[in-house]
Amino acid sequence: MGRIKFLFPNKHDVYLHDTPSKSLFSRSYRAYSHGCVRVQDPMDFADALMKNEPNISRASLESMIGSSERWVNPEHKIPVHIAYFTLRVQPDGNITSYADIYGHNAKLISALNK
């Protein structure tokens, strides 16, 4: 099965994509995509993105999987905002800390201390 990719304009050539390595989603260290963002449930994500697109259905998207590269251009612009967090509050209230692989925390702490 071919991967599903979600491309969006950005100066870093980052895109969102499916992965054949689903087991990576259960790991606490998940920086295996070389800068791109892995999408855990790409068809569910596509459904959410295309909910206002009358000419793009889940069935039409699923029919494209495994074929040569195909493009789907929605009529409506979809804003993309990527958030980077190194802490997560669990449902039980405990906080889980993740590695700051990009070093953003040190920059933020330095800026806040000025």
Rank of each mutant, 00 (worst) to 15 (best):
M1S: 11
M1W: 05
M1T: 11
G2I: 05
F6I: 01
F8C: 04
N10L: 02
K11Y: 05
D13T: 12
V14I: 13
V14D: 00
Y15H: 02
H17Q: 13
H17T: 10
H17M: 03
D18N: 08
T19D: 02
T19Q: 02
S21P: 01
K22G: 05
K22R: 13
K22I: 10
S23C: 00
L24A: 07
F25I: 14
F25N: 14
F25V: 13
R27A: 15
R27Q: 15
R27T: 11
R27V: 10
R30D: 07
A31S: 15
Y32L: 11
H34S: 15
G35Y: 03
G35E: 01
C36L: 12
C36E: 09
C36Y: 02
R38I: 12
R38K: 14
V39A: 00
V39M: 00
V39W: 01
D44C: 10
D47V: 11
D47Q: 13
A48N: 09
A48Q: 11
A48R: 12
A48H: 11
A48C: 08
M50A: 07
M50S: 05
N52W: 05
N52C: 04
N52S: 07
N52K: 09
E53Y: 06
E53H: 12
E53I: 13
E53V: 09
P54A: 13
P54E: 08
N55I: 13
I56Q: 03
S57T: 15
A59Q: 14
A59F: 09
S60H: 10
S60A: 13
S60L: 07
L61I: 14
L61C: 06
L61T: 07
E62S: 08
M64R: 15
M64F: 11
G66A: 14
S67Y: 10
S68L: 04
E69C: 09
E69M: 12
V72M: 08
N73F: 15
H76Q: 09
K77G: 10
V80F: 10
V80Q: 00
H81C: 03
I82L: 11
A83Y: 09
A83F: 08
Y84N: 05
F85W: 14
T86Q: 04
L87F: 14
R88S: 06
P91T: 05
P91V: 04
P91Y: 06
D92I: 09
D92E: 07
D92M: 09
D92V: 09
D92P: 01
G93L: 05
G93H: 02
N94V: 05
N94T: 13
I95N: 06
T96N: 08
S97P: 00
Y98E: 00
Y98R: 00
A99G: 05
I101H: 04
I101D: 04
Y102M: 08
K107V: 03
L108W: 04
S110K: 12
L112F: 00
N113W: 03
N113R: 11
N113Q: 10
N113V: 06
K114N: 06
K114P: 02
K114E: 02
